[in-house]
C-alpha cells in the first residue's frame, strides 16, 4: 500500500494504491499524519486503486473524518470500487462520507 499525497490550493488529495488491509492500516498510520494536520481543508481520499478495505482500514478513514469534523474541513471519497462500497454499506458508514467521481 502506498499513499500519494498532493496539495492543490485548499484541497489535499490522498491517492491510495493497493489493499488497505490490517497490515497496511498499521503501516500507514504515520503516512496520513499530514492529512490530520490539515483537516481544516478539503480532503479527497482517492480510492480508485484500492480494491480492498478491512475494518482497520475503515478505522483510518473514520479517524480522518473525525479530525475533519472537529477542524471544519470536508472529506470526500473518490472513485470507490463496488467491493469497497459494499463494505461501507455493510457497516452503514456509506452515509457518513460524501462520494465524488
Amino acid at each position: 500500500m502506498t499513499i500519494n499525497i498532493t496539495e492543490e490550493g485548499n484541497t489535499i488529495t490522498a491517492a491510495f494504491d493497493g489493499r488497505l488491509d490490517t497490515i497496511a492500516a498499521q503501516q500507514i498510520s504515520e503516512t496520513i499524519e499530514p492529512l490530520l494536520q490539515h483537516a481544516d481543508r478539503n480532503i479527497i481520499l482517492d480510492c480508485g486503486k484500492m480494491p480492498f478495505i478491512s475494518s482497520s482500514g475503515l478505522r483510518i478513514f473514520l479517524k480522518i473524518r473525525k479530525e475533519v469534523a472537529a477542524k471544519g474541513g470536508k472529506v470526500y471519497l473518490k472513485d470507490i470500487c463496488p467491493d469497497v462500497q459494499q463494505v461501507f454499506k455493510m457497516t452503514k458508514l456509506d452515509d457518513l462520507f460524501e462520494t465524488i467521481g
Binding site: 488491509d21 490490517t22 480494491p51 480492498f52 478495505i53 478491512s54 475494518s55 482497520s56 467491493d83 459494499q86 463494505v87
Partner: peptide
C-alpha cells in the same frame, strides 16, 4: 473478496 475480508477480520 468478501470471504477474504471476513477471514482477515477473524484472523487479525
Amino acid at each position: 473478496s468478501q470471504i477474504s475480508l471476513a477471514l482477515e477480520e477473524a484472523l487479525a
